[in-house]
Write a protein that binds this DNA or RNA. Sequence first.
DNA 1: CTGCATCCTCTAGTCACTAGAGGAGCAAGC
DNA 2: GCTTGCTCCTCTAGTGACTAGAGGATGCAG
Lengths: 145, 145
Amino acid sequence: MLDDLPIGRAAALSGVKVPTIRYYEQIGLLRPAPRNEGNRRRYGADDLSRLGFIRHARQLGFELDQIRELIALSEEPESPCGRADAIARRQLADIDDRVRRLLALRAELARMTEGGCHGTIAECRVIEVLADHGKCAHHGVDEAA
Amino acid sequence: MLDDLPIGRAAALSGVKVPTIRYYEQIGLLRPAPRNEGNRRRYGADDLSRLGFIRHARQLGFELDQIRELIALSEEPESPCGRADAIARRQLADIDDRVRRLLALRAELARMTEGGCHGTIAECRVIEVLADHGKCAHHGVDEAA
DNA sequence: CTGCATCCTCTAGTCACTAGAGGAGCAAGC
DNA sequence: GCTTGCTCCTCTAGTGACTAGAGGATGCAG
């Protein structure tokens, strides 16, 4: 009976770690679990289902605030689904952007490591390329500093 | 003369933000800058070059510890470059892995948003798919929770 | 001198967890 | 009943790479 599970069982069944479940409760993504006389949390099927939803959304790269919104939407079955769709589409665009950047970075690293490495640092393409930004093939990709 | 620059100029010329420069000095990636009588940091060409190296490596996704190591290597021109090459190759493999995962996630999101959205939450594929993990096309991609 | 921009240190926050200290509860085995 | 080992509890702080902002000092132009 999925109705009286300790947190360890809930973690095992949901794939979400014990401390992470506590964290989600703390930040309000999961309702506060009722406790037994020993003050231990007790979880039911609804909780497992919620955890699965969160886990799945995290895997898809949604941020917790987006997940919070998706959950709120899921609890209002009569509302229009445009908002959920927009969140997912934005996520899709974000992934596209990240892939594009990663592929550009990959190309540069491949160039760097091309032909292997047979000598010393003084002749090393990896160090050389990092040190000479004129050789940087992706100016404009500014995601840090 | 690139030999007596205040931090703001160094930031502008290197593309690394003022607080980030201070941060890099704090964590030892950048030597502590000499100060003028007003206790303001002064930077020279070598510093700008170092900042450029760090920035470029960050853009390529190297972690600061890896960058620390690459810098140490770059300061020993006679040493074998196998280590730098290995760091870069690992980064390449990491990017490949991330792209692969992102593409799998993209496929699932695309499926989710396919056909647009015309109704309510009760019929919403985004919410439906997140709620039903049997429909999850990428079991095994476990990068969170 | 005033005002504004730049610089300083320091503390704490961001995001999504994660680690661990110190203690309590629980159940099986003796 | 006692012991042992596992699970659970709260709380604090850490991770990585920054980032924000408070409160104050410096420098320069008007």
